[in-house]
């Protein structure tokens, strides 16, 4: 009988240990990724016709200011309950993620030279202009400048020595 108690106790101990080491994802859906704080004033942004478009910004505010986009798509979010939405305006694209019945900016990128970064860099600029704005440290040695701030990232891609893409995103933590 003592042995039986010992075995049961041992199994209980194993289970308790497992309880301590098991990941927090207790169901088959995983945990919600850390996207930072909605409305974070330190997040990357740019301004278009007086409207500030900022990572983790409230999409409803942007929509109210800019109106209906030229193109819109949505897809079931891999990471969240709800939909990931993509809004294309003439010169830029905004992607959002859902959180608590609202949509927040997850990523945006430029499509032409009618928009520019707060530092004045736009598509078509030279590598020298990019380096003057952001320094040489963020150069990947091949074709891009990648800047990081908190859990945000900005990427400037070069093609044949000129800027071909400027994009900002939340780095999912």
């Amino acid at each position: 009988m003592k042995r039986l108690i010992a075995i049961v106790a041992l199994l209980c101990m194993v289970m308790s240990l497992a309880a301590c080491t098991a990941p927090q994802t207790s169901d088959n859906k995983g945990t919600t990724p850390n996207m930072g704080n909605p409305g974070d004033p330190n997040a990357y942004y740019f301004t278009y016709k007086g409207t500030e478009i900022r990572l983790n910004g409230d999409m409803e505010v942007i929509l109210n200011a800019l109106g209906e986009p030229k193109n819109y798509t949505e897809e079931t979010s891999c990471a969240f309950e709800g939909l990931d939405k993509t809004y294309t305006y003439g010169s830029f694209v905004i992607q959002t993620y859902p959180k608590a019945d609202k949509d927040y900016v997850y990523m945006f990128w430029f499509l032409d030279d009618l928009v520019q970064t707060p530092e004045g860099v736009k598509i078509g600029d030279t590598q020298a202009a990019v380096e003057a704005a952001y320094g040489a440290d963020s150069y990947n040695g091949r074709n891009a400048y990648i800047l990081k701030k908190d859990n945000y990232s900005m990427t400037v891609i070069l093609e044949d020595g000129v800027v071909s893409s400027i994009q900002y995103t939340i780095v999912i933590g």
């Binding site: 798509t73 993509t86 294309t88 891609i157 994009q167």
Partner: peptide, 13 residues
């Protein structure tokens, strides 16, 4: 139905 044209940001590599 499809709502619009899908778009994604260009890749570095």
């Amino acid at each position: 139905p499809v709502m619009g044209e899908f778009t994604e940001a260009p890749l570095v590599d």
